[in-house]
Design a protein around this nucleic acid. Structure first.
Lengths: 203, 203
DNA sequence: GTCTATACTCGGATAGAC
DNA sequence: GTCTATCCGAGTATAGAC
């Protein structure tokens, strides 16, 4: 029983450290944030941080390991929606919700940069983004079946592109301004612009 | 005359150093690229690099100072186009062209990171992106006047959003795959989706 | 488990000879 | 202008006491 209690306590401490690390990484960047700084924010010594995490890179990954359950819940919540297109817009809106938070943009940028040379990190965020991508693809297929989405679109490729658009909202984030209208209009226009509508045939 | 020759020689050397720096920053990131490494790539000593640039941050900015003339030329080239919408798509295509180059994505990410705490860098890239944004806005206004673009759209805000979409193509870049079709379809859908078309009024 | 103290490495920047 | 040599600060990670 003591064993179990210890495990939980360790998990809590890891969570606490990861939270502070995430905050500081987002605000200052990975390299510009020292382990000593994170330790101070938590109220422990640098050495203690290394007791809970093997190295600094593991600390960064921990921040994103927390996202997977949230992504799974989000997709599950909309999987059985009656209106696929509407569900897609809702999912995108949820994903972009954090974009309003200043610092979320910084964290995305930091993630993209580090993902290029940390295979373990790629694995962590890859799982999360696959869950979202596949969930969106399923909705796209249903939207096509319903005749609401252009059947010429490839579901997986389109889902990937929609995720990229969400990333764009993060990059475009500014305080006191919500990118949701642009996002919805963009996705809507992309999904439902049938070739016959998009091209001008006047003569 | 000797004075002029020297100036040109210095400019050439600066250009040479900036080119190597850009390549390495894109591939490895700013902090992970040492000045010594850049110096080696050019074939000079680290001290010589500091003869041409005050510090490492100035070296990074130099990479982007070269973009302004190109942006001005791009906008000027399309300013008098007969078909505004078509011109906008062409401009976006040109902007996204570099996205195919592996490493361009890395450089964008690096830029976004560093821009947050280097005011001088913000000034440098700000000028370039303003030129593009204003150029696009002018085309959008003309597209609205022609009745090809939804008049409900705010030109400046829309131009800014289109730039964000271009950034998204960089993030979505993968080798052997061009994001141009997605980009064109997205912009087209966004600009020309009139509210009366976008909403389904079946009953 | 958490600390203090520190070993070790590395990178930016400068001094001063040539 | 370009070099060699070097200073200095910072940061990761570890050793070992408690």
């Amino acid at each position: 029983m003591a064993r179990r209690a210890d495990q939980e306590r360790i998990a809590q401490k890891r969570e606490q450290i990861a939270a502070q690390a995430g905050r500081l990484f987002a605000a200052q960047g990975y390299e510009r944030t020292s382990v000593a700084e994170i330790a101070t924010a938590v109220g422990i010594s640098p050495a203690s941080v290394f007791y809970y995490f093997n190295d600094k890179a593991a600390l960064f990954r921990a921040v994103f390991e927390r996202d997977l359950p949230a992504a799974e819940a989000l997709i599950a919540r909309h999987a059985d929606a009656k209106e696929p297109v509407s569900a897609i817009l809702d999912v995108l809106g949820e994903l972009a919700k954090d974009a309003i938070d200043p610092g979320a943009s910084g964290m995305l940028v930091e993630l993209l940069r580090r993902a290029e040379h940390d295979p373990d990190l790629i694995a962590v965020v890859g799982r999360t983004s696959e869950v979202v991508r596949d969930g969106l693809a399923v909705l796209i297929v249903r939207g096509i079946d319903d005749g609401d989405i252009d059947p010429a679109l490839d579901p997986i490729q389109t889902a990937t592109w929609l995720q990229a658009i969400v990333d764009a909202t993060y990059l475009n984030a500014r305080p006191g301004y919500s990118p949701l209208p642009e996002l919805r209009r963009t996705a809507m226009g992309y999904l439902t612009t049938f070739p016959s509508q998009g091209v001008d045939h006047r003569d």
